[in-house]
Amino acid sequence: MAEIETRSPSAIQNLVDQLNRLPGIGPKSAQRLAYFLMRCPREHAEELARAIVDVRARVVTCAVCQNVSDRDPCPICASPQRDPSLVCVVEDPLDVAAIERAHVFKGRYHVLHGALSPLDGVGPEQLRIRELLARLRDGEVREVIMATNPTLEGDATAMYLERLLQPLGVTATRLARGLPAGADLEYADEVTLARALEGRRPAS
């Protein structure tokens, strides 16, 4: 396998280094992408460069839900069709996109931009928690749905928020947790099984 040696022109090396900073892109993928960009039609490469500049110039944070958008407020917060009394709290903008794809949720969102981490020391001041509390102040929101990931960090975040919300008289709920579609009971871990049992419902 041919590797780029120290003889790579520095412009390529620079691109490789920049690509290598992206999440999920290792040194080898970065090399492959850099060489692809060098060989592809010049317009394609320029479009990509422009798109990157544009996204930073045009994308804003919605002051209501903290999601990234090209408008403030974002289309979801601005829509009269969405129920403002229901707020679904997620870790990342990608989680909003995932829930929207299911077309079942009619409320609004709140994006925390991360999760608390007891192990790495990510604290509440590093997330958009203050903004969430500010939204709850006028009494319009009746229910906050915790849709954080079912990980140690996501669960810690949900527990923390539940404690914060308790004195505010807002109902806090969590997504049901249990067996994912397509899973096999035999391979389920103890925590997943226990939660699936806790979340059981009458068979209909």
Binding site: L116, S117, P118, L119, D120, G121, V122, G123, P124, E125, Y160, R163, L164, Q166, P167
Partner: peptide
């Protein structure tokens, strides 16, 4: 630096608030 001390401090403040 043990960053997890920061999380522990935040949980402690939460206890006081409640």
């Amino acid at each position: 630096v043990l960053y997890a001390r920061g999380f522990a401090a935040a949980v402690e403040r939460l206890g006081e608030r409640v």
